[in-house]
Amino acid sequence: MDQSTIVLLLLPILLIQIGLMIFTLIDLIKNPNPNGPKWMWAVLIVVVNIIGPILYLVIGRRNY
């Protein structure tokens, strides 16, 4: 398999991870009342790959 095909295959993974991070950060910034300090969530979202954004979405976001 040549180099460019491999890059194309890896691209979706990168896009999903970065997309999820940016989307979650925007939601955090706009959230008037997150469950916990904003800076903590921001750090978690950026530092902890995939799990950080997921934790924010299920716990930090206050869905109810």
């Binding site: 999820l20 989307f23 995939i50 997921i54 979405l57």
Partner: peptide, 12 residues
């Protein structure tokens, strides 16, 4: 956004 991000995480 649950209908979006949950499938995306499973796809990932």
């Amino acid at each position: 956004y649950k209908i979006f991000w949950i499938p995306i995480v499973f796809i990932l």
